[in-house]
């Protein structure tokens, strides 16, 4: 039993580490198609990572140890996060280690380290990026927590494995609250992954960038780790959305066939999710930074409404 959990855990971690750059590549490809550009290959992200790993690190004179440690910390956090989210199986050895709230804490930990790293060199863009990242963060984090709260009120648990099990094996019922929090979650993940209405992952336009401004001073293997970590973050968020709102197909007990099936279903769902993301990014325009509070405030409001609606309409169920 425990051996199975270990196996599923390792499998999930490896799948996350390997598939995450591909998901990013897939989103970029879809987006290029939709925008009538010729698309980069699906494996482009791997080539970029490999190129960056081979390059030398150029470190600013003023960079401190914190700056050099941050990529490793952020990468570890994101790897742990993608190991915690139950995507392939709900029997994982890490699943009791962190529940939904701790997962939010984990994302916050990574965010704080990368923001501190952005301030470390002491350039104008770096600190601007850190400030904006923290700004987006403090708006997005409560909304994300609220989404989890609604899910945990439905399943009477904050443990992710239990939430997914409950939601996956309930008889079909329409939960308006879950629909609301699903939308809220989507808005939050757009913001957290530096996606279009809030930030543009491809821009280096000085005044609009957030995430890119923060990591401007990174190069070589450090940059590779950070890029990989953002791929992992996107992967973890996508898996989280899938696990919370489309959980069917998750393997439960020890069953290699179920696990294989779960992997196949996961890949299909991720492909669909990536396509949706590209669609959203193509259809919407980037907001001014100070429209972000409204965007995320709406997400927060939706999540709170979801909780209230759950208490009124669904609590008796």
């Amino acid at each position: 039993m425990n051996f199975y959990a270990l196996f599923a855990q390792l499998l999930e971690l490896i799948v996350a580490l390997i598939l995450a750059p591909m998901l990013t590549g897939w989103v970029n490809q879809c987006r290029a198609w939709m925008q009538n550009r010729s698309a980069p290959p699906l494996l482009q992200t791997y080539y970029t990572l490999s190129k960056l790993f081979h390059k030398d690190v150029l470190l600013a004179h003023n960079a401190s140890t914190l700056f050099r440690a941050a990529p490793y910390i952020v990468f570890s956090c994101m790897a742990l996060a993608s190991a915690i989210v139950p995507t392939l199986s709900t029997e994982l050895i890490f699943s009791p280690a962190a529940d939904a709230i701790a997962l939010v804490g984990l994302f916050a930990l990574a965010r704080i380290f990368i923001s501190l790293a952005g301030m470390d060199v002491g350039t104008s863009f770096g600190s601007l990026g850190s400030r904006r990242e923290m700004f987006i963060g403090f708006l997005a984090e409560p909304a994300l927590l609220m989404v989890f709260f609604t899910a945990s009120l439905i399943s009477h648990s904050t443990s992710l494995a239990t939430i997914v099990e409950t939601l996956a094996h309930k008889e079909f019922a329409i939960y308006p609250s879950l629909a609301f929090s699903g939308i809220a979650f989507m808005m939050v993940s757009l913001a957290e992954n530096a996606r279009v209405p809030i930030d543009n992952p491809t821009t280096h336009l000085e005044l609009t960038m957030i995430h890119e401004a923060m990591i401007l001073e990174y190069s070589g293997r450090h940059l590779a780790l950070i890029e990989w970590a953002s791929c992992l973050k996107l992967f973890a968020y996508s898996c989280l959305g899938i696990a919370l709102f489309f959980p069917f197909g998750v393997a439960q007990a020890f069953d290699p066939i179920a696990l294989t099936l779960a992997s196949a279903i996961l890949v299909a769902k991720l492909a669909l999710g990536g396509f949706t993301l590209a669609l959203i990014e193509t259809l919407s325009a980037k907001m001014r930074v100070f429209r972000a509070p409204e965007f995320l405030g709406t997400a927060f409001l939706l999540a709170v409404l979801a909780m209230l609606v759950h208490l009124l309409l669904e609590a008796g169920r």
Partner: peptide, 24 residues
């Protein structure tokens, strides 16, 4: 008819959402 009830609940929730959207 639990399904119909659920759809009505969904409609109610959407009405509330639209109410907020109008407010904002």
């Amino acid at each position: 008819v639990p399904l119909a009830g659920q759809v009505i609940n969904l409609c109610a929730a959407i009405m509330l959402l639209l109410g907020f959207a109008m407010l904002a």
